[in-house]
Computed example of a mutant assay.
Amino acid sequence: MALKSRSVTSDGKRVMTMEEFKRWLKKFDADKDGQISKSELREAIHATGGRFGMWKSRRGIRAADANGNGFIDDGEMNNLVEFAEKHLGVRIVQF
């Protein structure tokens, strides 16, 4: 499940819109409950070639999970942008 995007920046980050990012991340929603769990986020990290998936997924959940239930739902996806830009090699742009 490679990241697909329009272009790649000079620092190697893939450029995508928030909607493209959400669609890509939802591919890892293994149980199709509409939420991203820590293990599902770990799979996304590994799919981008990232290392330390367990540690990074724990940090990503903490960074994005506004209601503290341990999952990232659609309303919390925007909270994940900074994490994604740092650890998933993407740059989220507004079009």
Rank of each mutant, 00 (worst) to 15 (best):
M1K: 15
M1V: 10
A2K: 15
K4V: 14
K4G: 10
K4R: 15
R6D: 06
S7P: 06
S7A: 15
S7G: 06
V8W: 13
S10M: 08
S10F: 09
D11I: 12
G12V: 13
G12H: 12
K13F: 00
K13A: 11
V15K: 05
M16T: 04
M18T: 09
E19Y: 07
E19K: 14
E19Q: 15
F21Q: 07
K22V: 05
R23F: 12
R23W: 07
L25T: 07
L25W: 05
L25R: 08
K26I: 02
K26Q: 09
K27A: 00
K27T: 04
K27W: 10
K27Y: 08
F28R: 00
F28L: 01
D29T: 04
D29K: 07
D31R: 08
D31M: 02
D31W: 02
D31K: 06
D31H: 06
K32H: 10
K32T: 08
D33T: 08
S37I: 10
S37N: 04
S37D: 06
K38W: 01
S39Y: 09
L41F: 05
L41A: 00
R42F: 01
E43A: 14
E43L: 07
A44T: 10
A44R: 03
I45K: 01
H46T: 14
H46E: 14
H46Q: 15
T48G: 13
G50R: 03
G50N: 01
R51I: 07
F52Q: 10
F52W: 11
F52E: 12
F52Y: 13
G53P: 03
M54Q: 08
M54D: 12
W55N: 10
W55Y: 13
W55M: 15
S57F: 07
S57K: 08
S57N: 12
R58Y: 11
R58K: 14
R58T: 11
R59S: 09
G60K: 03
G60P: 00
G60T: 02
G60S: 02
I61W: 03
R62H: 11
R62S: 07
R62C: 07
R62N: 13
A63E: 11
A63M: 12
A63N: 02
A63L: 05
A63F: 01
A64P: 00
A64G: 12
D65C: 09
A66D: 13
N67G: 02
N67C: 04
N67M: 04
G68L: 13
G68E: 11
N69M: 08
N69P: 09
N69A: 11
I72Y: 04
D73C: 08
D74I: 06
E76A: 06
E76M: 03
M77I: 13
M77W: 14
N78W: 02
N78I: 05
N79C: 03
N79H: 08
L80D: 00
L80G: 02
V81E: 00
E82G: 11
E82V: 04
F83A: 01
A84W: 07
E85Q: 14
H87Q: 01
L88G: 04
L88P: 11
G89S: 06
V90L: 14
V90T: 10
R91P: 05
R91M: 14
R91L: 15
V93M: 07
Q94A: 03
Q94H: 10
Q94L: 12
F95R: 14
F95M: 13
